[in-house]
């Protein structure tokens, strides 16, 4: 029994070692600029960033591959920063909830709340590389402006959550500095968003802890731990990076303008078209 446990442990640890070795380096590139500091000495997160990327440089330089949002000018460049970059464990869903996630996956995400132009939730907004995110930092508040769906949130620094929160798509954020890391406690969520990829639903009991660490001029390490006792079996942590995109501006994105996809989805379902993968 002991031998079997040991063998199982070794297999698991070896697999993990291989997977970790294959996962992308968080820091890439040669020149590392110093972390800019605010007047109060804290790292200044202010700037326009691209989530789910680990490439340095301007938006154009960092998005030259063949992946989503890439120009294809350099076909040898990483194909899709988003798909390669996000490091996550298989999500620890309770069995009944895992079945629901799979159901959505098997329908190719046709039930994505974002397809209806509703605000994408957290941490998903940080895992989308196609649209930039602007951070504006002051000593009392850090404001995040997301181009995707044109949603925003304010992180109050210090204090506690209001006792009368109404369930919200992006919840209520309260931050504190732990050394050079901004730690954000987010609660007060509704249950209408996905956490990360296709079908990753949650309940109103979702509790999110985010850690923003600007490790040099170009890079913020973003770590998010999700807890939801109604849906998950335990904490679920993901890690990704946000890269500085000097010269990029956050623009308007009025999603409801010409959204034809829900109508297409409705017709697909009505006509019983299958979504079998190749």
């Amino acid at each position: 029994m002991r031998a079997r446990l040991l063998a199982a442990t070794l297999t698991l640890v070896t697999s993990v070692a291989v997977l970790v070795a294959q996962s992308p380096q968080r820091a890439t590139g040669a020149s590392r600029g110093a972390v800019p500091r605010a007047a109060d000495g804290k790292p200044d997160l202010t700037g326009v960033w691209q989530g789910a990327s680990n490439r340095r440089g301007s938006w154009e330089e960092a998005n030259s591959g063949l992946g989503v949002g890439g120009t294809g000018k350099d076909p040898a460049a990483p194909a899709n920063p988003a798909s390669q970059q996000v490091i996550t464990a298989p999500a620890p869903y309770q069995p009944w909830a895992a079945a629901k996630v799979l159901e959505s996956f098997n329908k190719r995400g046709i039930d994505d709340p974002a397809a209806f132009c509703l605000p994408p939730g957290l941490p998903r907004l940080h895992l989308v590389g196609l649209f930039p995110i602007e951070i504006v930092q002051t000593p009392r508040k850090v404001v995040l402006l997301y181009e995707y769906m044109n949603v925003f949130r304010t992180i109050q620094i210090g204090g506690s959550h209001s006792p009368d929160l109404v369930p919200a798509y992006l919840g209520d954020s309260v931050g504190r500095w732990e050394g050079d890391t901004l730690v954000v406690d987010v609660t007060g969520f509704n249950d209408k968003t996905w956490l990360t990829g296709t079908g990753t639903f949650h309940s109103e009991d979702l509790h999110l802890t985010e850690r923003f660490t600007r490790v040099d001029k170009d890079q913020i390490n973003y770590d998010a731990t999700m807890e939801d006792p109604k849906v998950l079996t335990g904490p679920w942590t993901i890690h990704t990076t946000m890269m500085l995109r000097e010269g990029t501006r956050v623009q308007e994105y009025a999603c409801a303008e010409n959204n034809q996809d829900p109508d297409h989805y409705e017709r697909l379902l009505k006509e019983g078209i299958g979504f079998k993968r190749p």
Partner: peptide
């Protein structure tokens, strides 16, 4: 907790 899997996360909707 550290098993690493590359999950494709893309925008916009499907």
């Amino acid at each position: 907790a550290t098993v690493a899997v590359a999950t494709p996360l893309r925008a916009h909707h499907s």
